[in-house]
Simulated assay, not measured.
Amino acid sequence: MGTVTGGEERGTTERVLTLLGLLQQRQVWTGPELAERLGVTPRTVRRDVERLRALGYPVHASQGIGGGYQLGAGQDLPPLLLDDEEAIATTVSLLAAAGGAGGGVAGAGDAALRALTKLDRVLPTRLQREVRALSGSVASFSGGRTPVDPERLMTLARACRDEVEAGFDYPAGRSGSELRRRRVEPYRLVASDRRWYLLAYDLDRDDWRSFRVDRMTGVTARTWRFRPREAPDAATFVQESVASRVYPRQARFLVHAPAATVRAQVSASAAVVRPRDDDRCEVLSGAADLDDVLMRVLLLGHEFEVLDPPELASRCRVLAQRLLAAGPG
């Protein structure tokens, strides 16, 4: 009879932890899908599922169309070793941080949301009710990111994780006075220095869109799963939308300064900065009036060239002559 080496034991442990991570990421996985992701046979997947069950994780299995392995809410939190009070305190703290009460710590909100989506899988139903009740008493007086209802964030985070359609009411047009129902395939939540955004495929407009989470109402997640599309990079898409596409006028400049220098001077929500080489970068920004964009770049204090639109270069000359005329003779 062969013996199991320490290396093989470590390999099994790492694989089981990877399996647990996959089950936390999505609502249902088929056996063949898990086998492919783990690089093992379906029989090994079944054995690893039994190992998780032995640790106390409630892994459910169902047959037929739409069936597969699913991680349910457990009676306890093995092997986190949290009692009920500790689990509630941890979750409420994460809800507060994800909703905007993170005290301005960089990355605190999105890290809290990632942790919440994992804890949500194993938090018992009886504790979930207590968490929802207690989270309503959490507030923050700190500045920074616009506060967002944590339950709204969690609903969207679950929908992204489980790859199910979501719906919400969202302001239509620039006035924002009319609300329209939007049906989307949610892909990623993106945190900026000021707000939370959702990258999603808009089913009614048949295109990618970014949405401000604080402007959503009536957020719901459906049970209808979608097949993931090839998505753009979430952070890049949202930043370009916020800094440029959302405005009626856009402009591009070639700035004679390193990209790192310019990024330190301008907010990520005001402009997209792309490096050209070690000493130059491209700046993309938008506004209702191009004069506002022009002043923004001028005040950076670097030499620059207008790349687009062509009429903005003419506007530069007009303003330059006006400035020269305002000086002493």
Rank of each mutant, 00 (worst) to 15 (best):
P258I: 08
A259L: 06
R274W: 05
R252Y: 09
G218S: 14
S210D: 13
L189R: 02
E282V: 13
P228L: 06
L290A: 03
Q239R: 15
A243I: 12
L199Q: 13
T220Q: 04
A251Q: 09
V272N: 06
C281T: 09
A200D: 05
V283C: 02
V266I: 15
F226G: 09
A288M: 00
V246N: 04
P171M: 06
A251N: 08
A172Y: 04
W196Y: 12
R280E: 14
R194A: 10
M216W: 09
L284C: 01
T223C: 03
A191V: 06
R195Y: 01
D204F: 02
L290N: 04
P258N: 05
D207V: 10
V255Y: 03
V255M: 07
R274P: 00
P186I: 12
H256P: 00
A259I: 06
S210T: 07
A268K: 00
A271Q: 01
A268M: 01
D214G: 05
Y247C: 10
R195S: 12
G286L: 01
L199A: 10
D214L: 04
L179G: 07
P232S: 08
R182C: 10
S269W: 06
R194T: 12
T223Q: 12
A251G: 11
V219S: 01
R180G: 15
V190L: 07
D279M: 00
A221S: 11
V262G: 10
Y170H: 07
R182P: 07
R205G: 14
L284H: 08
D207H: 08
D291W: 05
F253M: 07
L189F: 03
A231P: 00
L203C: 07
Y197V: 04
L198A: 09
V266H: 11
F211D: 07
A270W: 01
A257W: 07
V190P: 02
P275F: 08
L179M: 15
S269M: 09
S241Q: 13
A234M: 00
R263L: 05
R280I: 00
R182Y: 10
V283G: 01
R181L: 15
S267P: 01
V246W: 13
S175T: 14
R182E: 07
